[in-house]
Design a protein around this nucleic acid. Structure first.
Lengths: 198, 198
DNA sequence: GTCTATATAACGATAGAC
DNA sequence: GTCTATCGTTATATAGAC
């Protein structure tokens, strides 16, 4: 991001797209959030779609860098599960809108990953993934199927952020109570995982 | 639904809104799916918003009838957790798009519940909820916080449906492999819950 | 680079013939 | 009830002055 205005626009777009998604977010909203003229959006990013893809790609890479580096350092997932879960959880505390944004947009446009990344980048991702999986399976986790276990861990970490607004209604929480609930879940998760892995 | 055409429109709207959400779904899509003229949508439902609310309310009530009746019959949740989880899971196998539809729309419009239901209906829901909660807390589930446990159970059931498209990408699944994964999770869940509740 | 003015297209919604 | 034609609005995008 070599330009100042471009960065301001990008940051505003980051917020608005995450809050509203591609279809609901309006260029007008982004321009107002950035405090710039709407036509500047086109000067820097040409089209709404380009701006959106730029934002989405940035968020995907951010997630990978934040979490992938941890996976690389640790030899075994099962040994360091608590720490791993904490890092994930803390990331989502700081980015509460990110999970729903991510899942919704991938749902609306399943092919978008191939538009955002080259074949080499996707290949590199797959290579890393199978490397991690090999590590995990060597450790063994009892008689539970590995893929189901992985999905389970992602579920218990991510779902409360995804369903934040729904849970607020079901449990009669206001915004601060909801944030408190999500934060305190960070303490709860290690206990829970201990029970599952035994 | 007293009219034939109205029913056809409603069913088409049910599908399209669930697949795309309110903002992304177009009246054109719904009319084409229903094989009717677009202006008929207005004749029967006046506005897109009315049609959408009609669909959303129907899905919420469907979920309540399917699952609430079970909660009413059973004395204790912990005793019948396996069966309860199976009923939930099977419901979502039949309605895989429903969770993301529901959570996205509630996220986009948190006040919509108050527009769909009367104060009496909402009060009745809260009354039932605290009744169930009383039942559960009497049983006791060790030292784990109750609300966190409830959210955990919902997480491990619902998240895989929410993140269906994302998981397809991460685990390299095609559509039929994804459905197989979701179905087989029904067998996995009781084992998992046993571990958590011990 | 930034602005105003305007073109273009999509979409929701309505009017009116049948 | 169902259709065609069309309106009004909003959103994206472009042209051109500065």
């Amino acid at each position: 991001m070599d330009n100042e205005t471009e960065k301001i626009i990008f940051d505003a777009a980051l917020e608005v797209f995450q809050e509203k998604g591609f279809a609901t977010a309006k260029l007008k909203d982004i321009a107002e959030r950035a405090n710039i003229n709407q036509s500047l959006l086109h000067y820097y990013f040409r089209k709404k779609e380009v701006l959106f893809k730029s934002v989405l790609k940035h968020k995907i890479l951010e997630l990978f860098n934040e979490l992938g580096s941890l996976l690389k350092e640790k030899g075994s997932l099962t040994e360091n599960m608590d720490e791993l879960v904490q890092v994930y959880h803390n990331y989502f505390v700081k980015n509460p809108n990110m999970p729903l944004f991510f899942i919704s947009e991938l749902n609306n446009n399943p092919g978008i990953i191939k538009e955002l990344f080259t074949q080499e980048e996707i290949g590199e991702f797959k290579r890393k993934k199978s490397e991690y999986l090999k590590n995990i399976s060597l450790q063994g986790v009892g008689d539970l199927p590995l893929e189901q276990l992985i999905v389970t861990f992602i579920s218990i970490i991510v779902f409360p952020f995804l369903a934040k607004e729904t849970l607020k209604i079901v449990f009669d929480q206001d915004e601060s109570q909801s944030m408190e609930f999500l934060k305190s879940r960070g303490q709860f998760l290690p206990e829970l995982i201990k029970k599952i892995l035994i």
